[in-house]
Simulated assay, not measured.
Amino acid sequence: MKIWGKVFGFAIGFMFGRIFGAILGLWLGHLYDKKRAELSGIIGKGSNRQTLFFNTTFAVMGHVAKASGHVTETDIRIASALMDQLQLSGQARRDAQSAFNQGKASDFDLNACLKSFRLLSMGRKDLVQMFLEIQIQTALSDGELDAKEHAILLLVAKELGYSRLQLDELLKRWQAEYNFHRSGGQQQTSIADAYSVLGLTEADSDQQVKRAYRKLMNEHHPDKLVAKGLPAEMMELAKKKAQDIQAAYDRVKQDRGMR
C-alpha cells in the first residue's frame, strides 16, 4: 500500500493551513498515491530508467494502435515485428506483450504514463527523442498515418516537450527513412530523401551538412543512449537509426562531391 503521498501531503498541508490544510493535503496525497499505484503495473517493481523506457514504449504503442477504435491484425503484426527485430523472447517478450495490452485498455491513462516517463528521463533529451521516434516509426510502419494516430502522436510529443512543428519535422524525417529502405540502397535513394533524413535541404551549405550529420550521430549513438537509459534490447533500433543517418550522409556527400 502506497502511503507516502498522504503522509507528506498531510504534513505540508498542516504546516501551511493547519487542520483544513492537512485535510486538503491528505486528499491530494491520496490522489498521488493512487496514481503511483496505477502506474506501477506499467513501470514494474524495482523499476529503473531502462525498465520504464521498455514498458512505456510498448504501452504507448498499444494505445496508438487502439487510436482508430480497435486494434487490427496489422497493428498486432507491427508490434510483433518490432519484438522480433529486438529478438525478444521468454519473459522479455511477455513483458512487452503485457505492456502493449495495458496500453490498449480503455482505462489506460496516457498522460500519467508519459509524465512518469518524462520525469524519470529528465535531462536526457536524446533518450526522450528516441522514444518519440520509435512511436513514430511504429505508427508509420504500414506507410500510413490516419488522423487519430496523428492526434495521439501530437499529444505524446506535447507531453514530452515537443511542438507540433518539431513533430512534423520528425515525421518528415522518418518518412524519408521509410522511402530510403524501400528504395533498396544508397544508389537508388533519392537525394531529396537523403536530405530529409538529415533534416536539411539542398540549399544548405557543406558546413551545415557536416554539423547536422555530427549532431544526429551524437544523438543516436547506441552506447550513449544505453548509458542514458535505453534498454539494451533496443540498442538494435539505435544502431539501425545511426546506419540510416550514415547512409544519407554518404549519399549527400557523393552528390556534392564532398570529402
Rank of each mutant, 00 (worst) to 15 (best):
245 I>Q: 03
48 N>A: 00
85 Q>H: 13
125 K>S: 13
219 E>S: 09
121 S>D: 07
7 V>T: 13
143 G>K: 02
67 A>Y: 12
108 F>H: 08
97 Q>R: 11
138 T>I: 12
166 Q>P: 05
251 R>A: 08
26 L>S: 12
84 D>A: 13
93 R>C: 06
237 L>M: 09
211 R>G: 05
179 N>T: 06
189 T>A: 07
68 S>C: 07
4 W>D: 09
147 A>S: 12
29 G>P: 10
225 L>V: 10
102 Q>I: 07
245 I>A: 03
136 I>C: 12
236 E>C: 09
144 E>F: 11
98 S>K: 14
15 M>G: 07
164 R>I: 03
36 R>A: 08
112 A>H: 07
56 T>E: 06
236 E>Q: 09
77 R>V: 12
225 L>D: 03
28 L>Q: 12
145 L>C: 01
252 V>K: 01
152 I>E: 13
229 G>D: 05
181 H>M: 07
154 L>T: 14
248 A>V: 11
237 L>W: 00
56 T>P: 02
114 L>M: 07
152 I>L: 15
107 D>C: 00
31 L>H: 11
214 R>N: 10
197 V>T: 02
121 S>T: 15
212 A>C: 05
26 L>H: 06
75 D>R: 02
63 H>W: 11
104 K>Q: 09
121 S>R: 06
132 L>E: 01
162 Y>W: 07
217 M>A: 11
1 M>K: 14
199 G>K: 04
54 F>V: 11
239 K>H: 10
151 A>S: 14
229 G>M: 13
